[in-house]
Every structure is written in structure tokens, then in C-alpha cells.
Design a binder for these strands. Structure first.
Length: 890
DNA sequence: TCCAAGACTTGCCCCTATGTCT
DNA sequence: AGACATAGGGGCAAGTCTTGGA
């Protein structure tokens, strides 16, 4: 149904392959020069053989075809007048200015009592541990066990008595305190299973009592290691279990390609200003009904009766901030959300955008690489690819044979059979590498004016691509830049790493745009889009097939701050909140099924338990041409070790080949079931051989409409935050409250196993801090001596320069000692925090798992300026959550 | 019922701008 | 002013889940 965008035949394109001869206007982007180290710590300087160097920074400016301003009319309804370039379109503002909240929301259950959980062990990569030990300061409850698996750190344990560190430990509570009180039956339900565990099942185990910690989802992290496992062939055995995913809620998705169609000749765009939030005229009745249902469900929690109490300082801050953002963007924004997408169909009514921008064409640098010590001339196309490789000489990819092999296979095709270069081993890319380094250096040396000019220039070229007009509202586009060519950098042991990711051309790209909107002009003269669609059941603006895996797509979407994304974000969290109402029965159900006779049923029960307790991902099947990683449903026998009496040790590579290592005490029936599932299987066989994510999710949907495995992650993350914040926040300084927040954030990150590589300079930084602390301690020693002397009427000691110190009365000295002590304490605290978080990534959970309303409400309740927690982008992304009632609880 | 296409979310790392310290 | 540290944002890979169609 798609319509041809342009009438021009493609044959003209002189786009890329033909770069050499290419008259084209492009320059390659410098993406290729970006180096990513797989493992920075191991990074070795370029291997002898290939020495390369880098490519050009192709950041050139792409000649952007003249773009005519869209003939968009500004909707009369725009909430705020836009400024300047805003073209009078209303742009959704990230924040609503007046932060008002309602008092309506229910005080919410504080029944969520959960205790901390976990223990586990991780193999977090480190290099710093040494230092840590020497410092002797890194531990305190739960915070400093860097070498432990992330999850392990959650435990309250750690007998460290905070060597001298007086960190106001924010909330030792939720994590380390054992929740002894036995709440009413259901009180715990909303809490991650793990938290309840001990009570319910008091797993004997000689192991440490499950105690507090283990109750929440255990997580943990580990080093980033890759390993390869083979996929065992699974013989899916079906189970009658799931009747066509009953869930009324689910389903109902897109009616495929809507009106793409032929007639699309760009007409004048007429953006309808009208519809916004509540207009569902365009929604099919069936959906409206659904929508209505949804609303009912949500009503109690979501609706915020606007009341006027604006809350103190924080609110002001928010206002201020929002203004700032608006000012920056120069656009006004509407504050209303789009109508709930309900389940689906129509995502927009009118859509106008400018398409995508292409990376600049490759500009040959002419630097010759060596083959067997002699210079070799390459064509621009050959040189381009050689350069992609050369710039990666100092990355870990050079240690990977697969990378080199794949690169060589693709490059040699370009070289041709009879080329001088016959193998990679005799290649020396160093000259190119060196050239690239020089280019980088030059760029660095540019004056700030030059840099600024470049930046402005780029902005000017890109401006028009940055925005889309959705239903009359100006929204930011996310990734409007087409990915430049480069070598594929797969993570872990990806079988395709090193392959050439070819240049994307207009004829690879499908555009999706409103029927009445003008089709974006193809920026490459003589070329045309592959197709132009008008599908309003989807949100993408453009896509192309991934050159590495043509079966997959790369989409251009709106930015995270857009209403469309905000809406679905909100729905995600609402679904997770809904799980609260079902969690008890779900847990009861799967507990019962631990001993079911039907194996599939038992596997579903155990898998659900693991997903709930450990926040594991679902674990879809993967192809052989992907890195060998697993999730819950794809765990291999070898990934789980049974340790009597009832502990399970998990060790596997999860998403992004991040290692998950965690030893956890489980309920006896689970322990036994795992043993049974392993029985008679080989190490590499699937642990859950009767299960896959489709079956699992179908089952979950029977328990709660719309429930899928990943909802548990959101649920557990958010509820953990909510609980820790509400239990851990005390009266006091804002800084202390922020610590409480960070602490909770960290815990969630650990639960979700969100890791990051330890920075290269971490060790050095720690040593430096230690040194400074030692120096200050020496200062104190001297001061004490002076104090002593001063009290006896003697003059103070001479300073390091041998000069006599003056004016040191005992009072002055006392004061100095106190000040220095404060300094030391702060440094020690900082150091501890740093050590603590060196391998934990806090951002991921903040962006994806923590319901922002929890944060906003907490900020309001405790007078913490929201921008202390959310940066500019998060404020924009979570605009929809800003007016939440301060009493909101997840 | 199964598979694969399709759409969207999640996740880690790199680079750059900015802030802080010396 | 230069060195260093850090936050933020972009980039893009890698997941999850739904749906259409055989």
C-alpha cells in the first residue's frame, strides 16, 4: 500500500557504493572513528600487525537540500504562543509550569512492607579493590562491597563498621533491616516476592537466614564476560494451558498498514490544531470502550484532581526549570497528553516531518597504509573501509578473531581477488590510525569560537529535521540522523562483529507521514525514498532495514519527551501498578504450581517465580547469528547450580552480554523443581524445555490482563523505590534526602543488574583521594600538637617552610581542627560513594523502570527540588508526571 | 499453532561540554 | 590556564512483545 514517494527512478543514484566516482554530495560521518572499548581496562595499544589509524572524521556538513518551511498552520489552540522559529506551533512543554497537585489521591497503602533481600555474588570487574582495601573505608552496610556481585551488595550484612565514616546512612532500613513484623496477610503482596520470602516459606537452609534482604528481587551483577553456549534444540511441548491469550486487554493491535496508499502527492499540509487530549473521535468505537475501561481502572490513581496547593520550594524550582527549558527550546508546549492510545490503533491523525538527514559522503584522505611494509594505494571505497578498521586499532575488538575475520571477508570483497593485499596479517594500518589521531588532535585544538561556529552550522542544517508536527503539535524527533556506515560493533561474542555496515541510501528508507503532509524532499539529488506510507497506527517516521541483519529494522521515532512516548510510558507504569492488585493471587497460584504434576505447569510456575523474585528478563529465543545470551526462559542447565539445602546459584550472560551472578536461597519446592528440570539433561540443554516466552506470557495474561514478564521488572523496581523512599526519608537536609534517593536508586539498579564498566581512571582517583585524606590527617596531628603547646603557652611548631606560624590561639586551632575533620568526612563519604557506584549504572532504572510519579511526589512531600533528581531530559520525558499528587504512592 | 515480521523498549558506552581543582 | 572529573546526550545494539498469515 505504500506509495512511491517520488516519481524518479532510482537508477540515478550515485550515492554510496560509487563513492569513488561519486559526485555525490555526501561525506561520511565520523561514526566509524568512535571507539568503543569492549573492555577498557584491557585495552591494548594497537597490535603490531595492523596498525592503523583512524579515519577521518567525517563529520562534515551534509549539504542539506534546501528545505522549505512546512506550510503548517499554527493551531489556534496552542497553549502558548511560540516564539521565534517555533512557527507558532504548540510544542508540548516538558513541564507544566504551575505545579499543582491534588489532594485527592489516596494515602496509599503503606502496607507495602518489604524487607531487603538478597545476597548473591557477583563478579564485578574491578581493579580497584586493592585500593579499596588499603583505604579501609569502603564499607558500610551494603554500600561498599564492590567486589561483590551487585546483588550481593543488597544484603544488609557487611559487618563493616564504617570505619570512621560518618555517612549519614540514609536508609539503612529497607535494605538492611529485617522486617520482623509480620504484616497482615496481604500486606506484603505488593512487595517483590523476595521480600516476603522468609516468612512464607522459611526455607530451612543452613544458609544464612533469608532475613530481610532476600526478600526483594535479588539481583546482582557481575562482570561483563561473554561466553558462548550453544543453543540446544528445544522441543517445545505444548501445553493446553493458554487459551488464546484470553486477556481482553492485550491484543487489539495494529491493523497493519493503514492507509498507505497511492494517492499521496504531497499536498499542502493542513495541520489540524484541534484534537488533543481527550478527543477520541477518531478512535474506533471498540477501542473507545476499551479506553473507557482503562480509565476506570486507572481512575483512582491517575486522576489528579487539581487542587491548588502548590508546593513550596520545589514547585518553584520546577517552574523555574520548566521555563528554562521552554526558553531553550523556544517553543511553547502543550501540557496535555494525547488521548490514550488505548490499545492501539490510531496513534496520530496528522503527521508532518522532514524525513531524515544523511551522513556526509566519504572524503578520501589519501593516507597510504602498508602491506608487507610497502605502501598500498586504495580506492576511496577501499580506503573508507580500511579507515573504519584502522580507527579501531586501540580497541578490544582487535583482540577478537571473529571481528578481524568478518572485517577481512567484507573488505576483501571490495579489494577484489587480484589485489595486492591478500591477507590481513600483513596489513599495517598504522599510518591511517596516526592520521586519525592527528585529526582528532586538531579538532581538539580548535578554539571555542571555531567549535561554536561548527556547532551552530550543524544545528542550522539539522534544525528542520529535529521536529515533527503531530496532530498540530510540534514534537521533537529522536534519531533523525541516518546511521553512518561503519564496522558492526556487536556486544559480547557477537558472530557478526566486524562486518561492514553499509551506507544507507534514500532508496533504503521508507517514510511514514500524514497523507496530507508534503513528502519530505529526498536530500540526495537524483535519489528517492524507497517508499512513502501513511500508516497512523504506528509511531515511526521512517525506517530502513538493518544492513547487518536485513530482517530487522532501524526506526526513526519521536523523542522521549514527546507526548506519544509519554503516553505509552504512563501506560507502562499504570500496568505495573495494576500488578499490585494481582500479585498476591499470582504468587499464590505459582506457589501452588511448584508441585504440579504437569511439567509445563511446573516450569511456568518456577519461571514466574524467578522473574518475580529475581527480576529476570523473559528470555526470548535467539538466532544463531546473535550473541549467545539468555533470559529466564532460555536458561541452560549449566546456568543454574543447586547448592543444598535450597540455594540456587545463577551464572549466565544476560542482555548485552552482561554477566548475572547471584546465589539465592529459594523455597524448597523451587529448589527441588529445578533439580528435576535439570535431571537427565546435558549442561547445554534448556532448563525450561517446555517453555518459551510466548507460553509464559500467555499464561500471565490469564492471570492479569496485559501482564507480561517484563511488567514484573517495572513493578519490582518501582515498588522498591517507593518503599525505600517512604521508609527511609527523615527530616533533615536536602542533601541527606538525596542520599536516601540515591541509595534507593542504587538498590533498584542492583536488583535489575544494571552495570557499567569501571572507569579507567577509577583506581587512580581513589588513590588520589586516599592520599589527600592522609594529608589532612597529618594536618590534624600537627594542629593537635599546636593546640597542646598553645594551651601551655608555647609557640606553635614551624610550618613546612620553616616559618613560625602566627595567630594560633587555642580557639583558632580548635576551629581549624573541626573544619579539617569535616573536610575529611566529606572526602571519605565521597570516596565511599564513588567506590560503591563504580560498577552500578543508576541511569537505566531511572529512565526506564522507576515510575517518575514516585519521585515527583516524594520531592513534593519532602521539599526536594525535582531537578536535584531529574536532569533536563528526564524532566522533559516525565512531563506527564509532574502534576502528581504529593501523596501519590506506587 | 507456529513462525517471522514488525514495532517499540531497554541498555551500555562514547564523546563532548561544563564544572572543579590546582 | 591547564588538568581532571562528571553529567548529559547521542548512538546504536539488543532486548520484549504483538500480530498477521500460513
Amino acid at each position: 500500500m505504500a506509495v512511491e514517494a517520488s516519481t524518479k527512478p532510482n537508477f540515478v543514484n550515485n550515492f554510496d557504493d560509487d563513492d569513488e566516482d561519486g559526485p555525490v554530495v555526501f561525506k561520511r560521518s565520523n561514526a566509524a572513528s568512535r571507539q568503543k572499548q569492549v573492555n577498557p581496562e584491557v585495552r591494548k595499544p594497537s597490535p603490531s600487525t595492523f596498525n592503523g589509524q583512524n579515519s577521518n572524521a567525517q563529520k562534515g556538513k551534509t549539504p542539506v537540500p534546501s528545505s522549505k518551511p512546512l506550510p503548517v498552520k499554527s493551531p489556534p489552540v496552542s497553549l502558548k504562543p511560540s516564539t521565534s522559529s517555533a512557527k507558532a506551533l504548540p510544542v508540548r512543554s516538558p513541564l507544566k509550569s504551575p505545579v499543582v497537585y491534588s489532594k485527592a489521591s489516596s494515602p496509599l497503602d503503606d502496607r507495602l512492607k518489604r524487607s531487603p533481600q538478597q545476597n548473591a555474588s557477583i563478579a564485578v570487574k574491578e581493579e580497584v579493590s586493592l585500593i579499596k582495601d588499603s583505604n579501609g573505608l569502603i564499607d558500610d552496610d551494603e554500600d561498599s562491597e564492590d567486589d561483590k556481585p551487585l546483588s550481593a551488595r543488597l544484603k544488609g550484612n557487611t559487618n563493616n563498621a564504617n570505619k570512621g565514616i560518618k555517612t549519614p546512612k540514609p536508609d539503612a532500613s529497607p535494605v538492611s533491616k529485617v522486617n520482623v513484623k509480620s504484616p497482615p496477610e496481604d500486606s506484603d503482596d505488593e512487595v517483590p516476592l523476595s521480600s516476603r520470602f522468609p516468612k512464607s516459606y522459611g526455607g530451612t537452609s543452613g544458609g544464612k537466614p533469608f532475613g530481610s534482604d532476600e526478600k526483594k528481587p535479588l539481583a546482582n551483577g557481575g562482570s561483563i564476560i561473554k561466553d558462548k553456549q550453544q543453543k540446544s534444540t528445544v522441543v517445545p511441548v505444548k501445553r493446553p494451558l493458554d487459551k488464546a491469550s484470553s486477556s481482553a486487554l492485550s491484543s487489539a493491535k495494529k491493523p497493519k498498514v493503514s492507509g498507505t496508499t497511492t494517492e499521496m502527492k504531497a499536498k499542502q499540509v493542513t495541520v489540524k490544531p484541534e484534537q488533543k487530549a481527550d478527543d477520541d473521535d477518531h478512535i474506533p468505537i471498540a477501542q473507545r470502550i476499551k479506553k473507557a475501561n482503562t480509565l476506570v481502572i486507572k481512575s483512582s490513581t491517575t486522576k489528579t484532581t487539581k487542587v491548588t496547593k502548590s508546593f513550596s520550594s520545589s514547585s518553584k524550582q520546577i517552574n523555574k526549570n520548566s521555563k528554562k527549558i521552554m526558553k531553550n527550546s523556544k517553543y511553547s508546549k502543550s501540557t496535555k497528553m494525547l488521548p490514550s492510545s488505548g490499545d492501539g490503533q490510531k496513534k496520530w491523525t496528522t503527521l508532518v516531518h522532514s524525513g531524515v538527514i544523511f551522513p556526509p559522503r566519504y572524503t578520501p584522505h589519501g593516507v597510504k597504509m602498508l602491506y608487507k611494509g610497502k605502501e598500498v594505494g586504495l580506492t576511496p571505497a577501499q580506503e573508507e573501509v580500511a579507515t573504519m578498521f584502522a580507527v579501531m586499532l586501540d580497541t578490544d575488538y582487535m583482540q577478537k578473531d571473529k571481528f578481524k575475520e568478518n572485517f577481512w571477508n567484507d573488505w576483501r570483497k571490495l579489494l577484489g581477488k587480484n589485489h595486492v593485499i591478500q591477507n590481513l596479517d600483513n596489513c599495517d594500518f598504522k599510518p591511517i590510525y596516526n592520521w586519525h589521531q592527528e585529526q582528532k588532535e586538531k579538532k581538539k585544538q580548535m578554539t571555542s569560537e571555531e567549535k561554536k561556529a561548527l556547532k551552530e552550522d550543524k544545528l542550522k542544517q539539522e534544525e528542520k529535521y529535529m521536529w515533527a508536527i503531530v496532530d498540530g503539535v510540534k514534537e521533537k524527533v529522536g534519531n533523525f540522523r541516518v546511521e553512518p556506515p561503519g564496522l558492526f560493533r556487536g556486544r559480547g561474542e557477537h558472530p557478526k562483529m566486524g562486518k561492514l555496515k553499509k551506507r544507507i541510501r534514500p532508496c533504503d528508507i521508507t517514510i511514514n507521514i500524514g497523507k496530507d503532509a508534503p513528502v519530505p524532499e529526498c536530500p540526495i539529488p537524483g535519489e528517492s525514498w524507497k517508499e512513502v506510507k501513511h500508516d497512523n497506527t504506528v509511531t515511526w517516521l521512517a525506517f530502513w532495514n538493518d544492513p547487518i541483519n536485513p530482517k530487522e529494522f532501524k526506526y526513526v521515532f519521536l523523542a522521549a519527551s514527546s507526548s506519544l512516548k509519554g503516553q505509552s510510558d504512563k501506560e507502562k507504569y499504570e500496568k505495573a501498578r495494576k500488578l499490585k492488585d494481582y500479585i498476591q493471587s499470582i504468587r499464590t497460584a505459582y506457589t501452588k504450581d511448584f508441585t504440579a504434576k504437569d511439567v509445563t505447569r511446573r516450569q511456568i510456575a518456577v519461571a514466574t517465580y524467578l522473574i518475580d523474585k529475581l527480576a529476570l528478563r523473559a528470555g526470548n529465543e535467539k538466532d544463531d547469528d546473535e550473541a549467545d545470551t539468555v533470559g529466564c526462559c532460555t536458561l541452560k542447565v549449566s546456568n543454574v547450580e543447586c547448592i543444598p539445602p535450597n540455594n540456587l546459584k545463577f551464572d549466565f550472560l544476560g542482555k548485552d552480554s552482561i554477566q548475572y551472578v547471584n546465589t539465592v536461597e529459594v523455597e524448597l519446592p523451587v529448589y527441588k523443581a529445578i533439580g528435576q528440570f535439570q535431571g537427565g539433561k546435558k549442561q547445554n540443554d534448556d532448563l525450561f524445555d517446555k517453555l518459551d516466552t510466548a507460553k509464559l506470557n500467555a499464561h500471565l495474561k490469564e492471570l492479569m490482563p496485559g501482564l507480561t514478564a517484563k511488567v514484573f521488572r517495572t513493578f519490582n523496581a518501582s515498588i522498591t523505590l517507593d518503599e525505600m523512599l517512604s521508609k527511609g526519608t527523615k527530616q533533615g537536609e536536602v542533601a541527606e534526602k538525596i542520599l536516601v534517593y540515591q541509595h534507593a536508586n542504587k538498590k533498584v539498579a542492583i536488583i535489575c543488574n544494571h552495570q557499567r564498566t569501571v572507569s579507567k581512571s577509577h583506581g587512580a582517583q581513589m588513590s588520589k583521594l586516599t592520599e589527600k585524606i592522609e594529608e589532612l590527617k597529618d594536618v590534624i596531628k600537627d594542629l593537635k600538637i599546636d593546640l597542646d603547646r598553645a594551651k601551655k603557652g608555647k609557640p606553635p611548631l614551624k610550618d613546612s617552610d620553616g616559618k613560625q606560624k602566627r595567630g594560633l590561639t587555642p580557639e583558632v586551632i580548635d576551629k581549624k581542627i573541626a573544619q579539617t575533620n569535616v573536610k575529611i568526612e566529606k572526602m571519605e563519604r565521597d570516596m565511599k560513594t564513588k567506590e560503591d557506584l563504580k560498577s552500578v549504572a543508576l541511569g537505566t532504572s531511572k529512565i526506564n523502570y522507576l515510575d517518575p510519579r514516585i519521585t515527583v511526589a516524594w520531592c513534593k512531600r519532602h521539599d526536594v527540588p525535582i531537578e536535584k533528581i531529574f536532569n533536563k531530559s528526564l524532566l522533559a520525558k516525565f512531563a506527564w508526571a509532574m502534576d502528581v499528587d504529593p501523596e501519590f504512592r506506587f
